[in-house]
Design a protein around this nucleic acid. Structure first.
Lengths: 198, 198, 198, 198
DNA sequence: CATGAATGAGTGTTCATTCAT
DNA sequence: GATGAATGAACACTCATTCAT
């Protein structure tokens, strides 16, 4: 009930604008004035909602992680097969990554988090990672991954390939995020490479 | 011996120090004074060699890309089989990535390049990408990749997985860069996932 | 009353202080810190009003030229006789020159104007010159100057003699600006020199 | 015999280059590197001849004042009539002013002289002024100026009109310095203005 | 709640000067 | 004499933050 002068959803707007700028220019290269101007506020007013620039980044990252997890959860809700759940999760993550700026900020502005908040962010990120680790572990438990696969290594590989998409994806490009996810999935499923030894 | 004149290789030292700081803190968050102190110079002296902070970044990136390419070339020089060449290239790239800071800077400070230098860096990076594209195309031409694999998508997937390593690798960790490369390689060769449809 | 908000007319104060320092030390030799200290502000606060040192100089010059013209116009408003008008204008210009620093800055810091503003300042100065040229042309049209006087040369001579006063005038000196103007006037009216040929 | 590696006249060259730059950009805005480059030396080498930038300015001014006086003396050497001598002096001064940069520097960089050298420069300038004062006093003593002319005021007027020429003169302009001197002279001799009262 | 003028520590950069060679 | 790499104090300017209104 407290924050009511501001239109509902206004905080969202602030975070969205900040996310866009942080992603485009980087946290350090974005000024509070830039954000305020983009939001349509004055620099002093922004400080009522987010006392410091760092607080904005934190709020952004918290929301980003939570929303990404929620999107993934929603996407896999109806599926039972653990490998299918993993596939849908990858699709959902990529869709979220390319449609929202906050995930990229979470991924690439890790360094800009102020020391006091580091512990919290590590915890949030661990939770996030654990979510994915669980999806992979389920597939493994169901005997659907190679027997001696290093689950953590596999997770980091998938995660890396997926996150890197935010570096080159462009909305007008030839492939949707779903198509990209499916291509990656295919290469991992079938095995793209034929080793010399075989 | 006192107040040593700049030793040969001193420029290397400057670039190495700058690379480390840029990687640890980011380009924007690193001050010229930080770099100078780390190198063991005074701010004014640094400017004598690199007129601006941006020039330092550019020199760093140019060297980083060139050395990475050279390392990859050296690693694959003896191999003939195109898939083996690709595997060795991946190993070499990862080895370089985790042992030198400059590649990470190239990958993650793209935004900090000043507009005037953008064209040059795009060209250098295109050359770099083309090198990898060629390795993959060779494997494809030899019939060693799945027939309808999207070569660009595969390249971006491998590249993403590999580059992401710089985000989580720590020198004292349980796996060497070669082991990481081999694990990734294995998942791509054999196909880790067993799809539901099968 | 404490920590007074900027009083109206504060910009005037800033310009006056800057003008004094620019006149005493020159534009280049005056630091922004000097100005801020003299005004009673901090360097950052000064930049809030004038984004750059050059902008301060421009504002100063614009105001200086406008005020000088206004002072001259006010002084000649009541007079009809064109020669009398010229005499009053000279008096007013000299009075302004010695009582305000900005005219001296306009005269002697021409070189410090940044290239982008050059055109505007040339225009303003041309207008200023045209004003004087008109006064002289009126006297000439009334047949009150020697028939074959070069009007431009006469203007530059009067202007030079007048402006040079800012180089040696000191407020506590034996003559007021009006007395100086009258002396110059007399030498030009009567002809001080008796040529050898006569 | 001491300074002989350097070609004779080299000091002249240094001073000429410095004078040109000081005049064009101002003393403060001219860097030692600018001067060194223009002269064709390296910054360190310039310091062998002139230990500081201020020393260069002083040398420049000393030479400038001496040469101007010498030029004036040479010009009036043959004339006896005191008014004619004054006319020739004005011509010579203007000729020197527009053909050499050093006089302008003497006139307009007064503020940049370092405090320790102030006394010397005041003395030199007083000598210079006295020279002109003498020329005028001679004309007065010969009864060739109006009886109650203020000699100092007249000197300052002539000097101001003359020195201001360096502000607007351009070598390709429609009038030579002699023509300008003669025009000024005429206006002072004949009296250009016809006062209303007459 | 909101404003925006004011703050001041800190930034990248400049440049007269020094000095080992 | 001459060099030019190195120095470091000083510069103009930035910008997250504060706070009286």
């Amino acid at each position: 009930m407290a924050k009511q002068r501001f239109a509902p959803g206004a905080d969202e707007h602030v975070l969205d604008c900040a996310a866009r700028l942080f992603r485009e220019r980087g946290f350090e290269a974005t000024t509070v004035r830039d954000i305020a101007r983009t939001v349509g506020m004055l620099p002093g007013s922004l400080h009522y909602r987010y006392p410091t620039k760092g607080a904005l980044l934190l709020a952004l990252m918290r929301r980003g992680l939570a929303l990404d997890l929620a999107a993934v959860d929603a996407a896999i809700a109806g599926a039972v097969d653990p490998v299918e759940r993993l596939r849908l999760a990858l699709r959902a993550h990529l869709r979220f990554l390319v449609s929202r700026d906050s995930t990229s900020v979470v991924l690439f502005e890790w360094r800009s988090i102020e020391p006091e908040a580091h512990a919290e962010m590590v915890r949030l990120r661990d939770e996030y990672d654990a979510h994915w680790a669980r999806l992979i572990a389920d597939a493994h438990a169901a005997g659907r991954l190679g027997a001696h696969v290093d689950l953590k290594m596999l997770r980091l590989m998938i995660f890396g390939a997926a996150n890197w998409v935010s570096m080159w994806y462009s909305p007008g490009g030839p492939r949707t995020s779903d198509e990209i996810a499916d291509a990656f999935w295919e290469y991992l499923s079938a095995g793209v490479l034929t080793s010399a030894a075989r």
